[in-house]
Simulated assay, not measured.
Amino acid sequence: MDVTIYHNPACGTSRNTLELIQHAGIEPTVIEYLKTPPSREQLAKMISDAGLTVRGAIREKGTPYAELGLDNTELSDDQLLDAMIETPILINRPFVITPMGTRLSRPSEVVLDILPADAFKGPFSKEDGEQILDEEGKRIV
């Protein structure tokens, strides 16, 4: 299965999502989006395909969101996309793209919606110990 994750290795949610994908026996294409951001067109498509608004795909915490005045509700989607491309830390993460769909995997278990359910064998717990998959690889949450 062809899977791409826009990943930030410093983010626990992103690490958990990557590990869930790998737990399914899939080695995804990993794009560290802070080093290699998506194009404006790719970003707009990911946001749309995930069923989000542009504003819903912006990361506020730990970013210059407020300093850049992005909380101004009068800003257009184009202006927000421009800010996200210019300052990639504003792109919420991780975005995952599979043949089954695109998701912003927050929380990380959202990725299960776009991976084959029968791919999981055995339990899986997040870094914080929260169990996501039971002994049979079935979703708990």
Rank of each mutant, 00 (worst) to 15 (best):
R59D: 10
R55V: 12
K45C: 04
Q42D: 14
S39M: 02
N8L: 09
P94W: 02
L52D: 11
L34W: 02
Q42K: 13
D77N: 14
E32W: 01
I47Q: 03
L68Y: 06
H7N: 05
I114Y: 03
L20H: 09
D71W: 10
P64H: 10
G62V: 09
M84V: 06
L90I: 10
D134W: 12
L81H: 02
A44P: 03
E86H: 11
F120I: 10
P88N: 12
N92M: 02
D2Y: 07
D128I: 08
L52M: 14
S105Y: 00
T102P: 02
T29K: 15
K121A: 13
N8P: 00
I47R: 02
S14G: 09
T29S: 12
L80T: 08
L34M: 07
T87W: 00
F95Q: 06
H23M: 07
E27N: 13
T36G: 05
A10I: 08
M46S: 07
T102K: 00
H7F: 10
L115Y: 05
E86Y: 03
T63N: 13
M1R: 10
A119Y: 08
R15P: 06
S108Y: 01
T98E: 08
K126M: 11
E27M: 12
V111P: 02
V111C: 01
L68N: 04
V141R: 15
I47H: 01
P107C: 04
A119C: 10
A66D: 12
M46K: 01
P99H: 11
N16P: 07
Y65V: 13
L20N: 07
A119D: 09
P116L: 05
P9D: 11
C11W: 11
M100S: 11
E32S: 10
Y65W: 15
I132L: 05
S105F: 00
M46R: 10
E41W: 00
L133P: 03
G137I: 03
V3G: 04
A50R: 04
G69P: 01
T17S: 13
K61W: 09
I114M: 05
R103L: 06
L104C: 03
G101P: 11
Y65E: 11
D78M: 00
L18T: 04
V110G: 01
I132D: 04
A119M: 02
Q131W: 00
A44R: 15
I47P: 00
V141M: 12
E67A: 15
K61I: 14
L90T: 07
V96S: 10
L18E: 04
E19S: 14
T63E: 06
A24I: 08
S39I: 01
N72E: 10
R139Q: 07
E27P: 01
S108W: 02
A117R: 14
N16H: 09
V3E: 04
V3C: 13
V110D: 03
I97M: 11
E136L: 09
E130T: 15
Q42R: 14
D49V: 02
V141N: 13
